[in-house]
Write a protein that binds this DNA or RNA. Structure first.
Length: 824
DNA sequence: GAGCACTGC
């Protein structure tokens, strides 16, 4: 692991932020190395863990040895891991053998060329580990499947090795003249997988001419011209499609973690279906070069994916392939019909689509339920934790899934209060160490879960959903599942987000349960009844049904999809939601009013890594009449980072710091307050970390703000919204205090991006939105909290206990007319 | 006088 961290460190230093160089000595020593990727251990993919698992398995008992053997005995029909579509057996065997042979000789060349490579030793060591992965025996089958078919749908459970091995199986295939792209939903996963695969292939990672593997994530492009395999985030590949809708540089796209169903992956599958079936406009630009698509998912929802691609190849969807939401059919019947259908459609889609299933490598997890439902899951969790601690042997840490930071803090307190009563000298029980884990914690606090517990101590990790996908907590053998999560939902009619505690889905419960069986057999305690579990929805509602669609629709329009209602999506949002998004884009001038196609302005907005509303704000600010692009970028960068202002807890904040923070605040509202904070931070040239501490500002989110600001400035320059001279003159040292007229212009630009986020004071002293006349209160975190103003503009409208406007500024009603009479 | 699950360009 230390070697990994060391190389991460050099990468991180190479890419050190420009802004940080000013005080680099200090920053480098304070900050853990490898800036943003230092949390590589947090990577979702337990690639390093697989290695440890495989090795420890070998060293262990015969029964476990037998497990490995079983994984390898795939010829045994009992362990038929792979079901390649029947059709391929009819294809000419010889052509296939030739191609395989060619692939093999190419592979041999790679090996020979690398004989004296110092990385080769490591490569050889890793080969042994790779060969023990459940997916390894399927290499030939997988390669053959894509030789003849265009699409492979691969369901591989955790630990199968699919993410690291499939790209390596494919890149030497004869048809693979271009690159293999592998998409991931998260940045850390893309980077750590790339690093691992480079090691396995015995080449350096990234830009070196010898390197065969690279990665590209936001703020970090590490792709070399000889790379054969490129790991990237889903968003990055979509961004590449703006420049090249045909994805001509690739022969194959591997889409990983499809079951997570991010909006981006849904869009990506739609575009890829067009390319692979040749039905999309962009497909013509590939000039006959085929594109192969591998869709990888942890769950066996292969039928839905198969239907989706079959439909693209011109197969009429069978009646039962139309996605239905819980039609009340008994589960058994459903399975039977889907088996019949799969046999039928594998004929229909001959030579097009293969499906495949690979076993995972997991230990058994025993699941227990409450006998009676509980009203308070925190209390139930408290009891459960101590019961586990009393009854279950060591070692074995406990991972508890909860809803949010406040619940976690309270439960932590409750456990610690209880400890002296339970863990007495007479009890002979081991100690308990309680560790919170949620995204808002600092990196250092999150890292605490990776340090081994002190002797004779059991760790209890109280986590949010972050531990379900993003972070793999080591050492866990017991999972306690509250059955709840905070889920964000966008309400079309009201145009607002709500974040509410809801029941999780079955698949989410299963995912949580699986976290107990990664290193050894484990137990999962569900804080609800068995019958309650049965009533849960099968899957979590895909994000595309839960979010504001304006970004997604603009993404489609910018890539040439004019009829967005007709765009192929795995799950179709309501017509109402789509229409709302189209209307919003029209209001932002991102679409032509005549035909609804994307406008020039819309194209500019689509290139920016922002919501359409923030993109429109940027464009408005670049208008010479407004002339406030740089300050607007600073503010927008803040809205794209976590809260830069650290929570002020009444006791621990000293008066001095509070006063320093108050000096940053601006009477016009939160927008200009953010600006003054960014400018003050940026002009600090000696010790920014210290400055942040003194002003109760989060250094971590400020660093992110500076990254986003740098990126936005560069993109604005590229889009000719900003000249080189203007950028050169943007000197943070010569801070001109923002004049009132500049301040007003800044707010007018935000008004252009958020024309409906306005509320005015009504006679009873409350605020009502100008659209919909809904009651709204200024959020207590605002500098304008409690103030009565003619009208307010807000960045966000959220529902929690009541409806709140967050990030609020004072505006004048006559600005609204001004904006609509003016040109931009 | 409230409270922000988690990603991403």
């Amino acid at each position: 692991m230390s070697a990994i961290n060391a190389s991460a460190s050099s990468q991180g230093q190479k890419r050190k932020r420009e802004e940080k160089d000013v005080n680099s000595k200090k920053v480098q020593s304070d900050k853990p190395p490898a800036s943003i990727y230092k949390n590589l251990q947090l990577a979702e993919k337990p690639v390093y863990k697989n290695l440890q698992i495989a090795e420890s398995l070998k060293a262990q008992s015969k029964t476990k040895k037998a497990r490995i053997d079983r994984f390898q005995k795939t010829e045994n029909p009992k362990f038929k891991n792979l079901q390649i579509a029947e059709s391929q057996k009819t294809a000419p065997q010889k052509a296939r053998d030739d191609a395989v042979q060619k692939d093999e000789s190419q592979k041999q060349d790679f090996r020979n060329n690398r004989q004296h490579n110092p990385l080769a030793a490591k490569q050889n060591r890793l080969l042994q580990v790779r060969q023990s992965l459940p997916i390894w025996p399927q290499a030939t089958n997988i390669r053959n499947a894509l030789l003849e078919n265009h699409v492979l749908i691969l369901a591989g459970e955790t630990g199968s090795g699919k993410s690291t091995q499939v790209p390596q199986f494919l890149h030497t295939s004869a048809w693979c003249t271009g690159r293999v792209a592998v998409t991931q939903p998260r940045r850390v996963a893309a980077v750590s997988l790339a690093r691992r695969v480079a090691e396995e292939m015995g080449t350096p990672l990234g830009k070196s001419p010898q390197s065969l593997v690279g990665y590209n994530v936001r703020f970090d492009d590490n792709v070399g011209k000889n790379n054969r395999i490129k790991f990237l985030t889903e968003g990055m590949l979509l961004q590449e499609m703006l420049r090249d809708p045909a994805l001509a540089e690739y022969s194959c796209v591997v889409v990983d973690e499809v079951h997570e169903r991010s909006v981006n992956v849904d869009l990506l599958l739609g575009f890829l279906r067009g390319l692979v079936t040749g039905t999309g406009e962009a497909a013509k630009k590939r000039k006959g070069k085929p594109l192969k698509v591998v869709v990888m998912s942890a769950t066996a929802d292969t039928e839905k994916l198969k239907d989706f691609f079959s439909e693209g190849f011109g197969q009429p969807p069978t009646v039962d392939s139309i996605p239905t939401v819980n039609d009340g059919e008994p589960v058994l019947d459903k399975e039977e019909t889907s088996v019949e259908k799969s046999q039928e459609s594998s004929v229909l889609s001959s030579n097009k689509i293969s499906t495949c299933f690979v076993e995972g490598r997991m230990y058994p997890v025993q699941t227990e339920y409450l006998s009676e439902p509980t009203r308070d899951f925190s209390e139930a969790a408290l009891l459960q934790i101590f019961q586990i601690h009393r009854k279950e042997p060591m070692p074995g840490d406990i991972l508890v899934f909860l809803t949010g930071g406040d619940v976690i803090t309270n439960l932590q307190q409750a456990i610690e209060d209880m400890i002296p009563n339970v863990i007495t000298k007479d009890s002979g029980l081991p100690k308990l160490l309680v560790l919170p884990l949620y995204a808002a914690l600092s990196q250092a606090q999150q890292q605490a879960i990776f340090s081994p517990a002190p002797p004779n101590t059991r760790k209890v990790i109280l986590a949010t959903n972050i531990a379900e996908t993003s972070i793999t907590v080591p050492g866990v053998r017991f999972v306690v599942d509250s059955g709840k999560a905070k889920i964000k939902q966008f309400r079309n009619r009201l145009g607002l987000d709500s974040l509410l505690v809801k029941d999780i889905s079955k698949s989410s419960a299963i995912q949580r349960q699986g976290r107990a069986g990664r290193e050894a057999a484990g137990k999962c305690f569900r804080l609800y009844t068995k019958s309650n579990f049965e009533t849960l929805e099968k899957d979590t509602v895909p994000e595309i049904l839960r979010c504001d669609l304006s970004s997604a629709v603009l993404t489609m329009k910018a890539r040439g999809v004019n009829d967005v209602m007709d765009f192929p999506l795995l799950t179709r949002p309501s017509r109402e939601a789509m229409e709302r998004a189209l209307l919003q884009l029209l209001q932002l001038d991102a679409l032509n009013p005549e035909d609804g196609n994307i406008s020039d302005l819309g194209r500019k907005i689509a290139r920016l890594p922002l919501t359409p509303a923030h993109g429109r704000t940027i464009i408005a600010a670049a208008d010479p009449e407004m002339g406030c692009l740089l300050p607007v970028i600073d503010i927008v960068a803040c809205f794209n980072s976590e809260n830069i202002f650290v929570e002020v807890k009444d006791q621990d904040a000293n008066d001095e710091a509070r006063e320093a923070r108050n000096k940053l605040s601006c009477r016009q509202g939160d927008h200009l307050t953010l600006l003054s904070a960014v400018q003050a931070y940026a002009s600090e040239r000696t010790d920014r970390k210290q400055w942040a501490k003194q002003h109760l500002v989060s250094h971590r989110s400020m660093q992110n703000v500076m990254d986003v600001r740098k990126q936005l400035r560069a993109q604005c320059q590229q889009a000719k919204l900003l000249t080189k001279e203007e950028l050169a003159n943007a000197d943070d040292d010569n801070l001109a205090t923002v004049s009132e007229s500049t301040g007003n212009n800044i707010l007018k630009c935000f008004l252009r991006g958020f024309p409906t986020n306005v509320a005015r004071l009504v006679p009873d002293g409350s605020y009502r939105t100008i659209h919909g006349h809904m009651a709204v209160a200024i959020h207590p975190s605002s500098v304008l909290y409690g103030r009565k103003l003619e009208a307010i503009l807000y960045n966000e409208f959220v529902y929690t206990n009541r409806t709140y406007a967050r990030s609020v500024s004072a505006i004048q009603m006559n600005w609204l007319e001004e904006i609509y009479s003016g040109s931009s």
